[in-house]
Design a protein around this nucleic acid. Sequence first.
RNA 1: GCGGGUGUGGCGGAAUGGUAGACGCCGGGGACUUAAAAUCCCCUGUCCCUUGGACGUGUGGGUUCGAGUCCCACCACCCGCACCA
Length: 841
Amino acid sequence: MTETRFDPSAADGRWQRAWDEAACFAADSRSARPKSYVLEMFPYPSGRIHIGHVRNYTMGDVLARYKKMRGFEVLHPMGWDAFGMPAENAAMEKGVHPGGWTRDNIASMKAQLKRLGFALDWTREFATCDPEYYGHEQALFIDLFEAGLVYRKQAQVNWDPVDMTVLANEQVIDGRGWRSGAQVEKRQLDQWFVKLTDFADDLLEGLETLDKWPEKVRLMQENWIGKSQGLEFSFTLSNGDTLPVYTTRPDTIFGSTFVAVAPDHPVAQGVAAQNCDAAKFIEQCKRGGTTAAELETAEKLGFDTGIGARHPFTGEQLPVFIANFVLMDYGTGAIMAVPGHDQRDFEFASKYGLLIPRVVAANAEEADKPFDGEAEPGDGVIVNSDFLTGMAVDEAKAEVIARAEADGWGKGTTVWRLRDWGVSRQRYWGTPIPFIHCETCGVLPVPKDQLPVELPEDVDFSVPGNPLLRHPTWKHTNCPSCGAEAVRETDTLDTFVNSSWYFLRFASQPQDKPFDRDELAKWLPVEQYIGGIEHAILHLLYARFWTRALTQMGQIDFAEPFASLFTQGMVTHETYSQRSADGLQDVFYMPDEVNRASDGATLKSDGSPVTIGRVIKMSKSKKNVVDPDAIIARYGADAVRWFMLSDSPPERDLPWSEAGIEGCWRFVQRLWRLFAHYDASAKGEDKALARKTHQTIAAVAEDIEALGFNKAVARLYELTNAVEKAQPSSTRNEAVRAIVQMVAPMMPHLAEEGWQQLGGEGLLAEAAWPEVDPALLVDDEVTIAVQHMGKLRDTLTAPKGAAKEDLEALALASEKVQRSIDGADIRKVIVVPDRLVNIVT
RNA sequence: GCGGGUGUGGCGGAAUGGUAGACGCCGGGGACUUAAAAUCCCCUGUCCCUUGGACGUGUGGGUUCGAGUCCCACCACCCGCACCA
């Protein structure tokens, strides 16, 4: 017979059409089957998918297809996080409309995703820029407003002068806009805020229930919420003012030797107004670096204001400093400094020659032990502290708070790092905030029957700033209350609002409301959510908030949207560069501009040697990117999918390599030949292969459910190797059928071809996972390791479940073991049934 | 600086306290071929002269009959960060 090859360029499209025609992946809310909601973070339609998307969606797809094979009704939707700045940037740069640009991008990315054969329910597809979607979002925003969870305030905001927009605190990185990189300015503007802090405790406590989230992500959220408990009290200053401070260590109050305020604290500003040295010092503080690492290594600096602060217990006058290490926006912007038990205070006191008394010690005997060059922030017993002496730290904290409250000069306080979520954006391409400003009636929500408030199509991007503000007619309307002329809100919502509830709309999309409560109850929570670690805090926290808010308003019945979260690693690639002619910089080359051999690389154009750099995240600037389309065109969807699953554990980075994808391609063809040579008439049994097959089925299922795709892949290689070595038999045929079924979630096109070849009925996409025979999961013979003093000396074969005495006798009979023992006295023999025998002499 | 993570062949990585290196890639040898591609077979941690043995999971200790795995101390790299009082 002529040797044929699997031709993905023909097969991929054929099966994709077959799945479409059979509507295999449309989720049915009325199905009686158990449900499974598998979701990958929806993409921003930048125009091209990148290899990271391919990895993300392949993982979700394997899970979705597998769950379907296991009898679940699977919801696996896809849509587009379609609002945001790149569309406006494109509008400005290329003179295209953001909407048109976005729609074009969606069309091309959708085609790319289709070519990968993902089992997606495209009937539920939507883009967040669809007026239908953002209209419902406007209704929800109004609901939140009416529930008291949305408010306006004059606030100092981070103004990005390049993007002409306001940024959330979380979106300012090192004083620069997280997207534009421009130096952020401070401005006062009327802003819309969502009361994230109302749910601070709830969001924190909820983390404990998320036992299927990565520990790392829970910790990041916990730190972000930043709950701390302590004492807030006021010092009476020598100039007659009072200075509120916050401390988490009221137990160390007797160890406080100075007070420090932030450079932008009113007290500091007051001093600076009269003292130009103080003003200069404050200016100097502002020039310092702002990153954590810079601040950590920066020298602690202070300015003595000459003001005294009266210690609430001792009555002593403590000097008040302006200090560069105190932050205005945390607590009260002022601290009682305890140099003995806080490292920053210690460094500061050491520099300025202030006293460093000990008030906490390991035990009472060490009450006057000198410090060893650093503060001791730890636990212990209170010393040198009047009525607190002898108490444990926690006891002393409670005692000081109790006394402060009884005497009325302070109170126990919980301080949160978490702030409310500023959602206003002075930008066109977003959800219009559905409010109307009336001179007499104030700020009113747009009546719901007038939603959606749609974006105007005719907008001008030739100048920066918000086109909605400049539009000649759009903002002019009438007050819904008094009917007088009024103006629309021209701010739009942060795109994180769009992604805070899209997973609900996927599950239920009635026309007249955002979602149907009963239908949501069927699908939610998302059983498996998969995405990048970069969304560990913001998106996931906002989405958690949003579902809680909806629960509080009685619209849904669950608090946590994502039962299980998985954060996948990045796809990386080595870099190729040459030194530029002037020797000053590196010139990078794309992987397809380079010939990569095992011992080096050369440039295709002129054969000159190329430096192979480290394996790092794919980025345009380093040109170490591969184009999914080119790879799919060359190797087909299945080889690419297989590569995405092979070798590297999914939570780790995956190094892309040409050799690796070649290996996947060879395996695709190996399987194809296995299927092509299938002989249905083969007879006979092969007990060992039957065991191997059933053990593999059980193990692969376990691996997929734990998202251990690399291990599932390895097991499938093993079984394939065993099958290829086996003689024809009905057992072998059973193994081949099992392979077809097992690779179906991973390489669905090839698997369909194989299924057809083997005479399977209907589409494999609709078929079941192979059954496991539990009797075949255990071997009847086992290999026993024989050790002498813990070192392997021999192995022997014994029946499964053999008696300890028999194993011991067998082990001692081994010539190799006897040689090793060499006549020494046997003190002990350890026998682990079915595993090993260890002889101790 | 703090928090988290990771260290296993040339590379990606497997190993409920029980035969370290499964599986894949790279590499070497061979078969087939006029030749190549494709495919198939064998070898492939290091060292020693072999049968065979010694060493070997970042480093140093410890627990154990037995440690990649558990404990203590350290080192390196990666990621995150907010000097959080």
